[in-house]
C-alpha cells in the first residue's frame, strides 16, 4: 500500500520539531534552514500551516529534469533527487507549481521531500498528529469521518 504524508494545519502548533527532524535525517545537523518541510505562520489568523511536496503522480519536476536526476521510488511513490546526477540547473524548481523543490547553494544541488524511504522523520517527530503518514488512497478518511459523525448526530 502506498502511503502519503497528511498535513492538518488545525493541529499544527508551530513547534518546528518536524523541521528539526527532517534536517537531521537528511544532513546530520539540526538545522530548520535545510528542512524539506516548512511551517508557515499566518500571524493575522493565528494559523500555522505545514507544507511540503505532495509527490505528484505526474511529477513536473521529474519531467523537466534534463539529466534524469529525479526518479520515482516505486516502493513509496516518492520522487527522489539523485544527488550524484543533479547538476543544479534548477529547472525543476521552476517546473514545480508548489515551490517544494529548492536549490541549496552550499551543495549546488536541489532538494525535496523523499518520504525518507517510507518512514518520514517529520511525521515521527510531530507531537500533535498534524503530520501523519497514511494510506495514500484514503487521505480524506478523517474528514469523511468528521462529516459522518455530524450527519449521524443530526439524525439522532
Amino acid at each position: 500500500m502506498l502511503k502519503s504524508l497528511h498535513l492538518d494545519p488545525l493541529k499544527c502548533t508551530g513547534c518546528l520539531q518536524c523541521e528539526m527532524a527532517c534536517s537531521y535525517e537528511k544532513t546530520g545537523v539540526v538545522n530548520p534552514a535545510k528542512s524539506r518541510i516548512k511551517i508557515f505562520n499566518f500571524e493575522a489568523e493565528g494559523r500555522k500551516v505545514p507544507y511540503t511536496c505532495t509527490q505528484c503522480a505526474e511529477a513536473w519536476c521529474m519531467a523537466a529534469c534534463p539529466v534524469e536526476a529525479i526518479k520515482l521510488d516505486k516502493g513509496t511513490g516518492a520522487k527522489v533527487v539523485l544527488e550524484d546526477t543533479c547538476v543544479g540547473c534548477k529547472v525543476c524548481t521552476i517546473a514545480c507549481p508548489f515551490g517544494t523543490v529548492n536549490y541549496m547553494a552550499d551543495v549546488g544541488k536541489v532538494q525535496k521531500c523523499d518520504l525518507c524511504g517510507g518512514d518520514p522523520a517529520c511525521a515521527k517527530a510531530c507531537p500533535t498528529g498534524a503530520i501523519t503518514y497514511i494510506d495514500a488512497d484514503w487521505t480524506g478518511l478523517d474528514k469523511m469521518r468528521a462529516w459522518a459523525e455530524k450527519a449521524n448526530a443530526a439524525a439522532l
Partner: peptide, 19 residues
C-alpha cells in the same frame, strides 16, 4: 481564543492566540 501555539521546539504549546 482562536487557538493555542507553541514556541520553538515546544511539545506543550501553552501559548494563547486570540482575537
Amino acid at each position: 481564543l482562536l487557538t493555542n501555539a507553541a514556541c520553538f521546539g515546544c511539545t506543550i504549546a501553552c501559548g494563547r492566540i486570540s482575537k
